[in-house]
Computed example of a mutant assay.
Amino acid sequence: MLGELFTGLDTERGMTPEQQWTLQVLKLTEEVGESAQAVVGAWGTNPRKAQGSWLHVQEEVADTAITSMVTLYRMLGAQAPGFLAEVLAQKSARFKEL
């Protein structure tokens, strides 16, 4: 799994868990930024670049989702799936109330 691989490599480099988590969150924000750039490209609003595609946007959003999952795993380990399910249930319940 990617989370285990990255954690192992960073641990070998002497990074504390909190340092690893911080860098992983920064990586996540980088992926979100790439998704935003892809949207700008899909709309063709950057005159310095050729127009992009919505497929590219979808690929960048997928990268963001993958990085989010890796980030949670690196922070919580095997507890990550249960944590995510609990948060999803809480957030879903709010929408059911509407």
Results as ranks from 00 to 15, higher is better:
M75G: 14
L98D: 07
G14T: 11
R94L: 15
V25G: 10
A36D: 14
T64F: 04
P81H: 06
S68G: 08
K91N: 09
T22N: 01
R13N: 14
D63I: 08
T16P: 06
F6C: 01
K91P: 00
E86P: 05
A65L: 15
R94H: 13
R48E: 14
Q20D: 02
Q79F: 11
T71Y: 07
Q79H: 11
E30P: 01
Y73C: 02
A36K: 01
G52T: 03
A89R: 04
D10L: 10
D63H: 03
A50Y: 10
K27S: 10
K96E: 15
L88M: 06
L28F: 13
W21R: 15
K27F: 07
V32Y: 14
R94N: 09
L98P: 00
E34P: 06
G41P: 00
K91S: 09
L23C: 15
E12Y: 01
F83K: 11
I66C: 09
E18I: 02
E86S: 12
Q79A: 14
S68E: 07
L84I: 00
G52Q: 07
A65P: 03
K49Q: 09
S68Q: 10
Q58Y: 06
E86H: 13
E60Y: 09
Q24R: 14
W54R: 07
Q20V: 01
G82P: 02
L26Y: 01
F95T: 14
A85E: 13
R48V: 08
L5S: 02
G52I: 04
Q79S: 11
A85D: 00
S35H: 00
D10N: 12
E18Q: 02
K49R: 14
R48Y: 04
Q51I: 05
E34C: 02
F6T: 10
P47Q: 03
T11A: 12
A36W: 05
A78Y: 06
R94C: 01
T29W: 00
L2N: 12
L28H: 14
E30T: 05
A65Y: 15
R74N: 10
S53A: 08
F83D: 00
A78W: 03
L88N: 06
L9V: 11
L98H: 08
S92V: 03
R48N: 14
T71V: 00
V61T: 14
V39E: 13
D10T: 08
M75E: 10
E12N: 13
E12Q: 13
W54I: 05
A38E: 02
R74Q: 15
V57P: 07
L55W: 11
E31F: 01
P47K: 08
D63S: 03
G14D: 03
A62C: 02
R74W: 07
A89Y: 02
G3R: 01
V39T: 06
G44Q: 05
A42P: 00
R13T: 13
L72E: 04
E12T: 11
T67A: 15
A38K: 00
L9Q: 10
Q58V: 00
E60N: 05
P47T: 11
G44S: 07
A85H: 04
E34L: 02
